[in-house]
Design a protein around this nucleic acid. Structure first.
Lengths: 207, 207
DNA sequence: CTTGACACATACCAACCGGTATGTATGATG
DNA sequence: CATCATACATACCGGTTGGTATGTGTCAAG
């Protein structure tokens, strides 16, 4: 069996590892890390503890691997990549918000953002978790900040906006909208909140 | 022993109940509800399970009582009351943000907002929790929305702002700022994020 | 053909959890 | 003074958890 893209051998061992990571991601997304049950993960995958503890030394390592190998790439593909080279970050972000709002039955309203959920739960409890999560979060902020700076030189964004602080706020407000919508369980509130964030983005536009 | 304000007898029973609630609040604030240990709460208070299960039928009832009798009043005193009758909600909220930013070593950066923490953790997991928490949250939004409406008639707030949607966003963004700052564990980031929220509030001002 | 490392499966364990059953001191009431 | 509910304390229980020790099949190397 060969991986067509990488043209490298795909060991079944890597497959089971990936299976464990995906199941762990889902379980953690549903119940949080501390309440996530290894037994449930194994039941979902049909694997056993032997497999799990062969690939991961303990539960914490599994959780950190989920952050690095599942959450981070997903976030990068969904949120980083669309802003990677834009000179019109405001337009790009508005399009992003519109796309997110257009989803019907967004899972983010039901279960929230996997990254945000873990940050809220684990940051005060476990320092190494906090560090890994913070790296992902700050990478996100950095992507937005860089896009805003390019927007400033390109004339889309006002010169007086503080790129870093504004980027931090934008990501924070977005996560806030997701979190509150998760609580109200209302897609309408979710869309309305995203629209308000869009209004804020408009205030950054060079007149 | 008498309560001076109410002029009603203060039973020691009510005192131990209050002790349990405060300890439970602290434990839940530190570890979340599901990870909160009843044993730890009892160790903190010096009480025993007999006392706990005399006052509360089970752990869930204790958690809900914490929401109703600790979190809600605290939030009301801190966030609702300053906006209760203002005709200049923007000025009042700016003052509120400034006051929060002025705190040195705000616990909210270390452990986050108790309400938001519980919402993020419990909303997808337990429906009755979600409902109680949502009542508190929507009461908060309603207070902000009412203040914004008064600001519109008083001429401080632009006529074209959607009071409900804007209020929802303001609270969401605030909780987002708190949550992200908890993750970065940075007071500076916290203050910067609040300042950006202040910038958004300025855009609502009637020119 | 043998050996041995890898990739799991099975069986088991101590610790802790929320919850309960029962005992007991106190204080109000008749 | 007797009674009885209140307000706890103590002891205990079944279930679940993360983690481990050991067994087993497979497969590549020598």
């Amino acid at each position: 069996m060969y991986d067509e893209a990488m043209n490298a051998p795909v060991k079944t061992s890597d497959l089971t590892r990936q299976t464990l990571l995906e199941a762990a991601f889902a379980e953690i997304h549903r119940n949080g890390f501390q309440a996530a049950s290894l037994t449930q993960i194994l039941a979902d995958t049909g694997l056993t503890k032997g497999a799990l503890y062969h690939h991961f030394p303990d539960k914490k390592a599994l959780g950190l691997a989920v952050v690095e190998e599942v959450i981070r790439p997903r976030l990068a593909a969904m949120m980083f990549e669309p802003l990677a080279d834009t000179r019109q970050p405001l337009a790009a972000m508005q399009a992003l918000l519109a796309a997110k709002a257009a989803e019907d039955d967004p899972m983010v309203v039901t279960l929230g953002c996997p990254l945000n959920n873990l940050m809220q739960e684990m940051s005060p409890v476990d320092e190494s978790f906090r560090q890994r999560l913070n790296e992902v979060f700050e990478a996100w902020v950095a992507v937005v900040a860089a896009a805003l700076k390019r927007g400033k030189t390109a004339g889309e964004v006002r010169r007086d906006v503080d790129a870093e602080a504004t980027a931090f706020f934008i990501v924070s407000a977005l996560e806030g909208c997701v979190g509150m919508s998760k609580n109200t369980q209302s897609v309408a509130a979710y869309r309305s909140c995203l629209a308000q964030l869009g209004r804020f983005l408009d205030t950054l536009r060079e007149p």
